[in-house]
């Protein structure tokens, strides 16, 4: 995303502001979850054609001391902007916030986003709205996230908090100082599999990707590992042939990596391997056996047995009884093997 900037915060005297309404300007760090970014990009695509930028509200969590903010969710807020004035649908913002809080009671309002990197008077106005007392994030600073979505250029994100600036009292509402703060985009373990699929589509013309089965994703992963091994072994061969420049650090690193391979007795491996493969196959076999049994039981229960006309009902009764006995056997077997499995595992 954006280049990793470094940030320096200097304490400085604060400008005149209403006493007691001073939001904290302590530096904080921001963590953004990918789904918030995705949502902002989606909103940016759905803006009205005459709109330069769109804004929305950021939801997330804040640590107790307020030094770390995690942006987890966001929603769009309609607004209109002309050269002279900006209008944000406050009512919409309030009601939408209430709706979101009902579904995610743990998330709180943390700030707002805009889909342009520009900071102007209107930004300050909106920023002050989000940071105000009552409906805003006060006493914590409101986080402002800008995501530039200019076509043909890199998507750049920036995060800011604000401080009041020393101007006359009547201009205090539409002016503030945006202080850049560092941010990170982090994804959780659970999201990894989703991101894998999503980024799998990035090189495709139609930007789509079907769901992969386990075995397909395994194949791709192995293919990738093989490519990497190929690259390393090429380099090592080149060094041996004195074609590439050797490096002791790389050598050491490779040595360390190779020494991670466990030294196990072949007999142990053989035994563990056999135990586990048997477990896997038995469970697979059992599952399919049970499926067949239940299928059979269903078929017997609903099959139209034609032993004379009046016997149809009693005939099916016998059928389902038989099925019951059969799956009863399956159950006993299942229990026995299941127990055996667990004793193998321990």
């Amino acid at each position: 995303m954006a280049d990793t900037d470094s940030f320096l915060h200097l304490a400085r005297p604060l400008g005149p502001a209403p006493v007691g309404a001073q939001p904290s300007t302590a530096p904080l760090s921001v963590v953004i979850q990918p789904q918030a970014i995705f949502s902002i990009l989606d909103h940016s695509l759905r803006r009205n054609p005459d709109q330069e930028r769109v804004i929305g509200t950021l939801l997330g969590t804040r640590t107790e001391d307020g030094t770390e903010v995690e942006i987890r969710n966001c929603y769009a807020v309609p607004h209109t902007e002309t050269a002279e004035q900006v209008e944000v649908d406050m009512d919409y913002q309030k009601q939408m916030l209430a709706l979101h809080l009902r579904a995610n009671p743990r998330e709180v309002l943390v700030g707002w986003y805009a889909t342009s990197a520009e900071l102007n008077t209107f930004s300050a106005l909106i920023q002050n709205f989000y940071g105000q007392q009552g409906d805003g994030t006060w006493p914590h600073p409101a986080v402002h996230l800008t995501v530039s979505t200019v076509p043909g250029q890199d998507i750049e994100a920036r995060t800011y908090i604000s401080a009041p600036i020393g101007v006359t009292a009547e201009r205090a509402a539409d002016s503030c100082l945006f202080i850049p703060v560092p941010y990170e985009i982090k994804y959780g373990e659970a999201e990894k599999s989703g991101l894998e699929l999503i980024s799998g589509a990035k090189d495709r013309e139609d930007r789509t990707q079907g769901i992969l089965t386990d075995i397909e994703s395994l194949e791709r992963a192995i293919q990738h590992v093989l490519d990497m091994l190929e690259r390393v072994s090429n380099y090592v061969n080149n060094v041996l042939d004195e074609e590439a420049e050797p490096s002791s650090a790389l050598g050491q690193f490779l040595m360390n990596a190779l020494s991670l391979a466990p030294k196990v007795d072949p007999a142990d491996i053989e035994r563990d391997f056999n135990n586990h493969i048997q477990d896997v196959l038995v469970v697979s076999y059992l599952a399919n056996t049970i499926r067949t049994q239940i299928d059979l039981s269903n078929r017997l229960a609903t099959a139209a047995l034609t032993l004379g006309t009046g016997d149809a009902l009693t005939g099916t009764g016998g059928g389902s009884g038989e099925g019951g006995q059969k799956s009863g056997q399956g159950e006993r077997r299942g229990k026995g093997r299941g127990g055996q499995n667990r004793s193998n595992e321990s």
Binding site: R220, Q223, V280, S327, G334, R342, E345
Partner: peptide
């Protein structure tokens, strides 16, 4: 992100155990 090396992870027993439990429940 892609491909995901988590799929190279070799964990067998938890899955089997869970499947057995669920199958028994169904039976």
């Amino acid at each position: 992100l892609y491909p995901n090396f988590d799929s190279l992870d070799l964990s067998i027993d938890p899955f089997l155990e869970k499947t057995c439990d669920l199958l028994l429940e169904s039976i």
